[in-house]
């Protein structure tokens, strides 16, 4: 039995989903160690009893070995930051000696053993899942836009999943990915950057031991449902085409997710059953006591960090040098005051 570590990354807002992920993973893979990488602040009002939660370990992203972590965090919005931390934390886990590491997005739920992926890491160093496994028909203009062009823009592989072996090439991948995420994890598609994902289009070129997993049961989501009919066998196994459903990516919980799911699931009732289950579970794990705002989206004086302020700071070295902790408003109102007056 390998030493498998699974982690996810989120802030408080996604904690309910992360709990669904953790419980569903442990239910089918009880021997795996589950890590929660939390990019938020241990709130005074809400002091959390983490031992009661379904996570084996909780790691705060401020504890990551990133230089001037506050400055680095400030440059990102919540999605960018929760994504950027994935790289340094992968490096951290490998450095701790974890033999096999799997990252799963918090809005994924697991429905079966991930043994097949675990075994792949005996042969390969990195495993990625493409968004798409089949080309769209030339008549399906919408599907080409939604799925193929969208994948070209955002990245061929969905980085809601990545599996890495703690060997030479696994570590090389982790270092490369982490380095890039520490410098370029932004949503700037016009510059060819889309958080942690677009970069990974290059990964198969760089890493010969990378395996592209073409399992229809992995990372099923609205972007590939058009080619993935789901059914449930008499024995209660959930099948996607002929593969067992291993994990489903419940992306965009809410009306948009519903519309995209409907567009591609059409009459596939089992897909709606999966969603109904997921929605029930998220509600079950909802914790109203949690802070409603993201700690790192605010200055120390309680004012919201605007996108403009964040982006300006991201691009101006001089500001970074002068305001080493941009959250701080102590010295002359800090970067907050400067931006108010000068920008």
């Amino acid at each position: 039995m390998s030493d498998v570590h699974v982690y996810t990354s989120c802030n408080y807002y996604y904690l309910d989903r992360a709990k669904v992920l953790a419980t569903s993973l442990k239910r089918h893979n009880p021997n795996y160690t589950f890590w929660l990488l939390l990019t938020d602040y241990p709130d005074d009002v809400y002091s959390h009893d983490w031992s009661a939660e379904p996570f084996d370990k909780v790691f705060w992203s401020t504890d990551l070995p990133v230089q001037n972590v506050n400055q680095w965090m400030f440059k990102h919005d919540v999605v960018e930051l929760c994504t950027a931390v994935k790289g340094p934390f992968l490096e951290y886990l490998l450095a701790q000696g974890c033999e096999k590491v799997i990252y799963l997005d918090p809005d994924i739920a697991v429905f079966d053993s991930l043994g097949s992926i675990e075994r792949l890491l005996d042969t390969y160093s990195i495993v990625l899942t493409p968004h798409q496994l089949e080309p769209e028909s030339k008549h399906e203009v919408f599907a080409i836009q939604d799925n193929e062009l969208c994948s070209s823009l955002h990245g061929v592989f969905n980085l809601g999943f990545v599996a890495v072996k703690n060997n030479k090439q696994g570590n090389q991948f982790a270092t490369w990915w982490s380095d890039r995420l520490q410098a370029f994890c932004f949503d700037e598609k016009d510059k060819g950057i889309f958080v942690d994902q677009k970069l990974c289009d290059l990964a198969p070129c760089y890493f010969s031991e990378l395996y592209i997993l073409r399992d229809y049961g992995c990372n099923v989501a609205s972007w590939n449902l058009g080619h993935r009919k789901i059914k449930i066998t008499d024995e209660g196994t959930i099948l996607v085409k002929n593969d067992t459903l291993k994990f489903y990516h419940f992306t965009k919980l809410g009306p948009i997710g519903d519309i995209m799911t409907e567009r591609y699931a059409k009459d596939n009732v089992e897909v709606y059953e999966l969603w109904a289950w997921y929605k029930r579970k998220v509600i079950e794990f909802k914790d109203e006591r949690l802070p409603k705002t993201w700690y790192y989206g605010y200055y120390a004086n309680g004012e919201k960090v605007t996108n403009e302020a964040r982006i300006l700071y991201r691009h101006r070295k001089d500001l970074q040098n002068y305001f080493t902790d941009p959250y701080s408003t102590e010295k002359d109102g800090g970067y907050y005051q400067w931006f108010l007056v000068n920008a």
Partner: peptide
């Protein structure tokens, strides 16, 4: 009827097909 919709064939309770039923 799984989720009041489809005949489920009564799989074992630890199967995912049973788990997703309300």
């Amino acid at each position: 009827l799984r989720n009041d919709i489809t005949y489920c064939n009564a799989p074992k309770i630890d199967k995912a097909g049973c788990e997703i039923c309300v």
